[in-house]
Simulated scan of single mutants.
Amino acid sequence: MTHALVRILKHLRQGPVPTGELAAATGLTQGELRSHLESLTQKGFDIAVHPLLGCEIRVSPESLVAEDIASRMKTHWLKDISTLAVTPSTNSLALEYGTRGERGPLAFFAEAQTAGRGRFGRVWESGEGEGLWMSLLLHLNEPIRFWPRITTLAALSVAKVIESIQTDPRLFPQIKWPNDILCGGKKVAGILAETGSHAQAGPFVVLGIGLNVNQKSFPPSLAHTASSLRVLCGSRVDRADLAGRLLEHLYQSLSKIETGFDSILASVKARSSVIGTTLSVNIGGEFVEGLAEDLDPDGCLRLRMENGTLRTLSAGEVTLRSPRVAVGAPAEDR
């Protein structure tokens, strides 16, 4: 990621800027500015240069560009952003970086994944140019005992970024514990957190997020259970803008992984599709059924069993027996 390009794009997103003013604002010479504008053209931007008005973005590329994503962010908390045309799995790539000693925070985005995966080793459908297939490599300062909370933090971040672009109150996102985001009862996003360690760099966590954005349809095997933001909103969604918003939400949420997690939990509970429902949970081949009563202080599910005992679950595959469908925004966000 070239930081000078990020600075240029930030200024151009405010409207036309005279070339002399743009060069001064970004700390570049006129020659350097011309060179960087050419680089942006090669990355797919259509930038007009008018003798009076100056420079103006006419068209941004549909493919994800690291500098484009970074220019949409208010807080530059990442060391680097990488965008790839194709990779087997962004989580596998981030894990590879972590195990060889690279330190985060780093973000990886791919236009397509050939071996994208979800929990329990399931294949994640990740068509080219249709979604946000991303992973973060993070070296958290907080004690490791708090790290399992990251899935809950990420789920709320994804839900909030969907709410920021989706206005139909019937389709506000719900969080299906532990790691899915539903809209109108259909899955639009999934989260996969994994950990690793390096002798010198220390332990790290990889946070993977798959978000269906611009798919117009799904294979028959998924059509009844999956949806996309384009289907929900009725129009194409700017993925770079969405990525920038999501990274901002993640930054804000991650700051509360230890202190302030109670406020995260309150927001997650308000969006939960499982609390108050009867469900079945597959825990490594063991099936348990009960009433989802609450989330514990770490985001684990409290399940009231048929015999009246309370069981706390940290993970599992959930099947809803009496699903809830959202009908409006959570009360605390209205």
Rank of each mutant, 00 (worst) to 15 (best):
I81Q: 02
R100W: 04
R34K: 14
F287D: 14
F287Y: 05
F146H: 04
M1L: 14
K186L: 10
K187M: 00
I209M: 05
R239L: 10
A48Y: 10
E248G: 15
L246K: 03
I191S: 00
D168H: 15
A292Y: 06
E130M: 13
S253K: 03
S235Y: 08
T29F: 01
L33D: 09
P61V: 09
F109H: 01
S228L: 03
W124I: 12
L12P: 12
T41M: 04
S157D: 04
R13S: 13
G276S: 02
Q200P: 01
T319A: 11
S217A: 09
L137N: 06
V237E: 00
T167Q: 12
S272Y: 12
T114N: 03
K10G: 06
A240M: 06
L156D: 00
C233L: 15
L132C: 02
L279I: 02
I209K: 03
V274A: 14
K43S: 07
G234R: 05
L192H: 04
E317T: 14
E163K: 04
T26W: 13
R7P: 06
S235F: 13
D262V: 10
L40V: 03
P178V: 15
L156V: 01
G185I: 08
D262I: 01
L12R: 02
N91Q: 03
D168S: 14
S157A: 12
L5T: 01
R230S: 07
S228M: 05
L156G: 01
R302P: 10
E293V: 09
L106H: 00
Q252Y: 13
Q30C: 09
G208I: 08
R245N: 11
V59L: 11
R34H: 07
E102A: 11
C55P: 03
G127Y: 03
L84S: 07
F172E: 15
T278M: 11
I162W: 03
A23T: 01
I150Y: 02
V49Y: 05
S126V: 06
L156P: 00
V123P: 11
H249A: 15
L254T: 15
G290Y: 01
E62K: 12
D333F: 14
T87F: 10
F109S: 05
L295N: 03
R122L: 12
G44L: 02
G44N: 09
T309K: 13
L132S: 06
T152P: 00
V281P: 11
A329M: 08
L207W: 06
W124L: 03
T312S: 12
P143Q: 04
A329V: 09
D46P: 01
Q252W: 15
